[in-house]
């Protein structure tokens, strides 16, 4: 039962619901502001037209996912060092939020690619590695769910979560070093075969920066916080069940 005590402590600590609700409200307002700027304020791309507006969410979602998956690495390393369950919960929240954001990233990219590349999907190294990145983290959830012993589950999840980050790094790096990807790099120089890149004016840059900030600094932490809260309650229910069973 010693292994269980940290999670009980974490769950019964002051749960900051007021602060979480305030953060959620701020996130909602900022998200709507970002959406409004993407739809109305940012200039329309001269060649691509309105579909280019998806890009603000596409990039925001990717970097939100990046931050969430980086949290999984931090959670994994910290769990292995301290063996405190709260870090495992942190890592799990990172994976689940990151997977959702990666799906948003893939979906917006796909909708954009249909008019620009004339296809929903193409087997390009960048796209393939982004899709595999999602699968790695789904595999993470499957590895987790297959282990009954709590300590083993947390240890294996930490190790796999750290290994899995290689796919995120690979996705980020592949566009910079591979000349045969058609995915454009909007910031910095992209591949020579890139199709659908565009130059941004100041209203577009402002919109991009605001949306990036919202997705990375507000949306991702808010979602993760809710997920951690949920996990703490779930752990507490499990503890109550075990205590009840032991009483007979």
């Amino acid at each position: 039962m010693t292994a269980a005590s940290p999670s009980v402590a974490a769950a019964s600590a002051p749960n900051h619901l007021g602060r979480l609700k305030a953060l959620t409200a701020v996130t909602a307002v900022a998200f709507l502001l970002g959406l409004g700027m993407a739809l109305a304020y940012a200039g329309t791309d001269a060649i691509q037209g309105n579909v280019q507006r998806l890009f603000y969410f596409h990039m925001g979602a990717f970097f939100g996912a990046f931050v969430a998956f980086a949290c999984t690495v931090v959670g994994g390393v910290q769990y292995l060092r301290t063996r405190n369950v709260k870090w495992d919960t942190f890592a799990l929240a990172g994976v689940e939020v990151g997977v959702v954001l990666s799906f948003i990233n893939l979906a917006t990219g796909s909708i954009w690619a249909r008019p620009i590349w004339n296809t929903w999907w193409t087997w390009d190294p960048r796209l393939t590695s982004a899709a595999v990145m999602v699968l790695v983290y789904i595999a993470y959830l499957m590895v987790r769910s297959g282990i009954e012993n709590r300590d083993t589950r947390h240890r294996f999840a930490a190790v796999y979560g750290i290994l899995a980050f290689s796919s995120v790094v690979f996705t980020l790096v592949v566009i910079r070093i591979r000349p045969d990807t058609i995915h454009p790099a909007v910031i910095g120089t992209g591949a020579q075969d890139a199709q659908g890149g565009f130059a941004m004016n100041s209203s577009m840059t402002t919109t991009l920066l605001l949306n990036m900030a919202v997705w990375v600094f507000l949306l991702t932490p808010t979602l993760m916080w809710w997920r951690i809260r949920l996990q703490n309650y779930a752990d507490r229910v499990t503890q109550r069940k075990i205590a009840y069973m032991e009483q007979g």
Binding site: M133, V136, V143, G146
Partner: peptide, 16 residues
């Protein structure tokens, strides 16, 4: 060491 056992290795290994 998981419940699924041998079937899980390709799922865990291929994406990595």
């Amino acid at each position: 060491q998981t419940r699924v056992g041998e079937a899980l290795l390709p799922i865990a290994l291929l994406p990595i």
